[in-house]
Amino acid sequence: MESREVVAAPPAPCVTQFSILLSATARGARLARHLAAQQLASWGIPYTTDLACAAALVTAELAANAVTHGRLPGRDFRLTLLKLPDRIRVEVTDARPERVPPTAPVAAPPAPESDSGRGLLLVEAYADRWGCEVRDDRTKTVWAEIAAVPGVLLTA
């Protein structure tokens, strides 16, 4: 009989998640930012830290884009926050999979007199990585990851 060594798999990284469905309205977008800040605080990331401020701003921009460009009547958007060991991941899922943001880095900023068009520039500036995934024929998810201070792990 042959003996086999049993090797335990490495532990999966600790992931804490918050997810909520919000109305695809300006009020829902504002609420997304407030809920993100509140959730991060409950995870031990105070409101005044650079990480919390960046995550709240990125959440606000992604939620505003979902409401502006990803809205369908009667359909909501989903905000998901993931606390990973070394970063926060913000995901906003909306109802318009055919309206995908540009994948290349955002080009030139809008004209100074323009009232819109700066959201993805802000996401690009504050997030370490961001992108878009179309997971099915009814939704798309735009996500962004904001790293914690290098060498500092986000504890549970």
Score class of each variant (00 low, 15 high):
H34C: 02
T80Q: 00
A12P: 05
V15D: 00
A37Q: 09
P101N: 05
R30V: 08
H69Y: 10
D76S: 12
L82P: 04
R27L: 15
V90N: 15
L82K: 09
A55D: 01
S19R: 15
V100W: 13
R99F: 04
P46G: 04
Q17D: 15
P10T: 05
L72V: 10
L72E: 14
C14A: 09
E91T: 05
R99K: 00
D86S: 04
G70S: 06
R75P: 13
A52G: 00
C53K: 13
R75L: 12
D50S: 03
L72G: 14
L40H: 01
T68P: 07
R99H: 06
V92H: 04
G74V: 13
Y47D: 11
P85A: 09
A104H: 11
P13M: 10
R71D: 05
E61P: 08
R78P: 04
R96A: 07
V90P: 03
V106H: 07
V7T: 06
G44T: 01
L82C: 07
A24G: 14
H69I: 04
Q38R: 13
R96S: 02
L82S: 10
A26Q: 14
R30L: 15
D76M: 07
L79V: 12
C14Q: 13
C14F: 10
D86I: 04
A66K: 12
L82Y: 04
A107H: 02
F77Y: 07
I88R: 01
L82E: 11
A36M: 01
A8H: 14
L62H: 05
